[in-house]
Design a protein around this nucleic acid. Structure first.
Lengths: 150, 150
DNA sequence: CCTAAACCCTGTAATCGTTACAGGGCCAAG
DNA sequence: CTTGGCCCTGTAACGATTACAGGGTTTAGG
């Protein structure tokens, strides 16, 4: 009647590695699946769709914690879903900040790239630049730069 | 004569935590510094500048491996520095790819955000969307999406 | 029948850069 | 003399994934 898939099949169908699938289970994003006679995990179609949900969320850059919250909302259809909107909005803001930051880095890099074709390291503009302090940040406090970079 | 700084002073001056400084030393990016009578690390002005170099590189998003390569170039001023240009160019290309990817994610997120104000989870457009397969990637192979995200 | 490949299992360690401890030593001001 | 502030070393945590090690089971081919 119902079709069940082994973890390798699920991996091929969802593009999610078996290791990740087991990882999601350990973290509680996936319920423990049925087991075959030899202890093999057996996944239903619903589980496949849940994994697709997770992968889609990951591909959007959401972390597993946020995805878990979204899954819990989905598991309780009567709940108010403004939390989902919060998560998406916050993540969008996070993305936009990261984009702006990376854009600034790329701009800065573009100014030094291709400045030292064929020269010696002693004269290299890139290395020179790295030795110079950053005007924008070494003086003013901006401790959240790293977090935006990651 | 020469002034030496303890690791806490260096941290205050460079914005680099003592833990990170010790970490850079363990990885070989910083030479083992002089030690005081109590075994405290003592850093010269040159070491301060080397740490500034590392931090500037990190703030550009370079990884420590690339920074180490740049430092080695800097340590051998007679070397050809086209490798530095390679590193910077590759990183710039990497940044641009990440920006494009994040831009696409942000665009996709913008389409679903604010679609479910005050509704129930069952009708939530965000959750609905996550359950739907991604057209752009689930069919075609594009395994390097994650790497661009990070 | 036998064996090698291809699965699956569990648990642990690696990646990357940083932070946070634990457990200890040293010194100065209260 | 005790407290707080530095410093030391070594280890574990973070997040998500990958890569093992060490073992079991099935399947296909010879």
């Amino acid at each position: 009647m119902t079709t069940y898939y082994r973890i390798g099949d699920v991996a091929a169908r969802t593009g999610c590695s078996p290791e990740s699938i087991r990882h999601y289970e350990k973290l509680g994003l996936l319920p423990p699946p049925k087991r075959g006679e030899q202890g093999y995990r057996l996944y239903s179609q619903a589980a496949l769709e849940r994994i697709g949900f997770i992968r889609h969320g990951r591909s959007l850059g959401l972390d597993l914690h946020n995805i878990q919250e979204l899954l819990e909302l989905s598991d309780h259809p009567d709940t108010d879903c403004s939390a989902a909107d919060d998560i998406a909005s916050r993540h969008l803001a996070h993305l936009e900040a990261r984009i702006a930051k990376l854009q600034a880095l790329a701009d800065e890099l573009r100014q030094v790239v291709h400045q030292c074709r064929g020269g010696k390291a002693a004269d290299c503009q890139i290395i020179q630049t790295l030795y110079e302090h950053q005007p924008s940040c070494s003086d003013t406090r901006c401790g959240d730069r790293q977090s935006l970079l990651k």
